[in-house]
């Protein structure tokens, strides 16, 4: 065994001009994308140095597009690519990283993404984001093209946003949002929480399905969902709810206080924690019973991580230690309203 020199620290070309360094970084990044890097002795140090490199690439691309707005488009796409790289790096390394590194890496990546979004919206305020099918170059053109060609599947579609339906809270910041589903006459519907920042959300009563998308720093209290809950892209939140099924995608640093009939699942999550349901309001017993949720199944702790299909405990989730758990919260006195704090 020969002593292994620490060859993982970043190359010390600090003296080089910023621009040249930036180009070098980009080149290195693209090389790495083409061929997976050989495994290193210290995965954490290796990750950190690669992460730092990718981060630098993203930052310098962003600052380049700020300093020269005329030539911003390429820089912007370079930044986007670098940020994607960051995300991928973190995802690849998430299993082997200590929690602190993971969290700070995630925070850095999401900050950069926010900065990129800002820069992009400054540059092209008119162009709105839309999903499209990637039009793949036909690798194997059909030998016998049908006489009538169908219209390409990636033609612009009727805007989905335009038909977004009813009930929900969307696009709010620093607000307290309360809805009592028991007082509305509507039949069982779904409810949507989307694009909320620093909000307190109280939903009393029952609903058939709950969709949650893009929440940051929110606290969400939900009575009973006698169907499924789909939670995507949440950060630093707390959820207290009871439901038949719960799927959680892309959650970071978020706590879930659940009562659930089946096993909750997580996918692409990290730093999520679970605890038993802890919510009270006048009539919640009835709501839970009507929804078939009166029984505590203990499934709040039986989490399946689709990114960790092995027998040993997933590093992406854990239980909330008992001494840290929220006390049962009584929201009886919260009245239906929406107001900005």
């Amino acid at each position: 065994m020969e002593p292994e020199p620490d060859h993982t620290k970043p190359s010390t070309s600090a003296a080089a001009a910023g621009h040249r360094k930036h180009l070098a970084m980009l080149e290195r990044l693209s090389k790495r994308a083409a061929a997976p890097a050989p495994s290193q002795d210290s995965p954490v140090a290796a990750f950190l140095s690669r992460f730092a490199a990718a981060k630098l690439a993203a930052e310098s691309a962003l600052s380049a597009c700020r300093s020269s707005p005329d030539d911003a488009q390429p820089s912007l796409s370079a930044a986007a690519a670098a940020i994607d790289d960051l995300d991928r790096l973190v995802a690849e390394a998430s299993h082997s990283l200590p929690p602190y590194e993971l969290r700070s890496a995630l925070a850095a990546a999401s900050d950069l993404r926010a900065a990129h979004r800002l820069a992009a919206s400054d540059l092209r305020p008119k162009k709105s984001f839309s999903f499209r099918n990637k039009s793949k170059a036909p690798k194997n053109p059909p030998q016998d093209p049908p006489p009538t060609l169908p219209p390409p599947p990636d033609q612009p579609n009727p805007s989905v946003e335009a038909i977004l339906p009813g009930l929900g809270f969307r696009g709010r910041r620093d607000a307290t949002l309360v809805k009592d589903l028991r007082v509305s006459d509507e039949k069982d519907g779904d409810f949507t929480l989307a694009d909320l920042v620093s909000c307190q959300v109280y939903l009393k009563g029952k609903c058939r399905a709950l969709h949650v998308h893009k929440l940051k720093d929110c606290r969400v209290f939900v009575g009973a969902v006698f169907g499924s809950v789909l939670i995507e892209d949440v950060e630093r939140c707390a959820f207290v709810m009871a439901a038949h099924q719960i799927r959680i995608h892309e959650a970071t640093a978020t706590d879930f206080y659940l009562r659930v009939r089946s096993r909750p699942i997580i996918e692409d999550c990290c730093g999520v924690r679970f605890a038993p349901h802890a919510l009270k309001y006048e009539g919640i017993g009835e709501d839970l019973r009507d929804a078939g949720l009166e029984e505590e199944t203990g499934n709040w702790a039986n989490v399946d991580d689709f990114k960790w299909l092995r027998a040993v405990q997933s590093p992406n989730w854990c239980l909330v230690p008992e001494e840290e758990r929220l006390q049962t919260i009584d929201i009886s006195d919260v009245q239906e309203r929406e107001y900005d704090n």
Binding site: P146, P158, V160, G166, G189
Partner: peptide, 26 residues
């Protein structure tokens, strides 16, 4: 699926959004 949920899109609307008409005629 889930036509019992209020706010669900009708099958005809789903067909439109999924662009089913654009499928290969066979």
């Amino acid at each position: 699926n889930k036509q019992d949920i209020q706010g669900a899109l009708k099958p005809s609307e789903i067909a439109k959004v999924l662009n089913l008409e654009a499928m290969d005629g066979s």
